[in-house]
């Protein structure tokens, strides 16, 4: 049988200039359950589907707060994500200590990007087997970044990674023009609808398998803006949101649109 000789380590280029080990690591991201992130002008949300190993076991955590103003959503190897999460927490704390203010989101993302890149260039190391959505708020407002095992980081308007995430991305692409002006609640509902697109046939969103995280900038009375610290919601705290997107039936994108428009008229 044909054997690929170029995929044993991350220091070997294939004749086409590809590094298969890095591409395989990207496949590990697709094994994780789906996570969705969306940023508006004022808020950024992360929503995730949690998996349980068996009926009676607990659900795997998907959202990790990093600092007051940043959190990550993970898809892939959870243990790798924990290493990155710890590292990011340390970096954020260190930044607060030296500069007396929170770390800009892009700076944080670029640090883990270069950390991951090193793993793709040195023998004996392996790429991280996890993809992240990094959401946070800084002086320039809300941000959403995607991180890949290759060390590639890109700022997105909205994105989804993990199993069957293409369906969620299609929903996001369809609605991308609406996100900028969404308020906090609308943004969460868009996130949940995108998430629903990626569910397998007979599964649905429940308070057990759904996580929601939000952060944003709130305008105070005097015109100054304050950061709404990143907050993760689980269990009964997500009930209302799940119910609010429960009635859009199959082909949710269509019904979702009319409902979203209805919302705008209301406010």
């Amino acid at each position: 049988m044909f054997r690929n000789n170029y995929d044993n380590d991350s220091v070997t280029f294939s004749p086409q200039g590809r590094i298969f080990q890095v591409e395989y690591a990207a496949e590990a991201v697709k094994q994780g359950s789906v996570v969705v992130g969306i940023a508006s002008k004022t808020h950024v949300v992360l929503v995730a589907i949690k998996r349980n190993a068996e009926e009676l076991s607990s659900y795997q955590k998907k959202l990790f707060p990093i600092d007051e103003h940043v959190a990550i959503a993970i898809a892939g190897l959870t243990s790798d994500a924990r290493v990155l999460s710890n590292f990011m927490k340390q970096q954020c704390l260190g930044h607060r200590l030296t500069f007396g203010r929170s770390m800009p989101v892009r700076t944080l993302v670029e640090i883990i990007g270069s950390k991951a890149q090193i793993n793709t260039q040195h023998y004996g190391k392996r790429p991280y087997g996890v993809g992240l959505l990094v959401a946070g708020v800084d002086d320039h407002g809300p941000h959403l970044f995607e991180f890949q095992p290759s060390g590639m980081t890109e700022e997105m308007v909205a994105f989804a990674i993990g199993a069957r995430s293409q369906m969620a991305r299609t929903y996001l692409e369809k609605n991308i023009d609406k996100f900028a002006d969404c308020d906090r609640e609308e943004l969460i509902r868009h996130g949940l609808r995108a998430l629903k697109e990626s569910l397998v046939q007979d599964r649905e969103l429940t308070i057990d398998n759904t996580s929601v995280g939000v952060s944003g900038v709130v305008k105070a009375e005097d015109g100054s803006s304050k950061v709404e610290p990143f907050q993760v919601y689980d269990q009964q705290d997500v009930t209302a949101w799940i119910e609010s997107v429960a009635d859009d039936k199959e082909g949710g994108a269509g019904t979702g649109e009319t409902e979203a428009e209805g919302m705008e008229v209301d406010s």
């Binding site: 940023a39 700022e155 997105m156 308007v157 994105f159 991305r169 996001l172 692409e173 991308i176």
Partner: peptide, 9 residues
């Protein structure tokens, strides 16, 4: 991707 933030990267 269409989902990339324009002119941000």
């Amino acid at each position: 991707s269409k989902l990339l933030k324009p002119n941000a990267n």
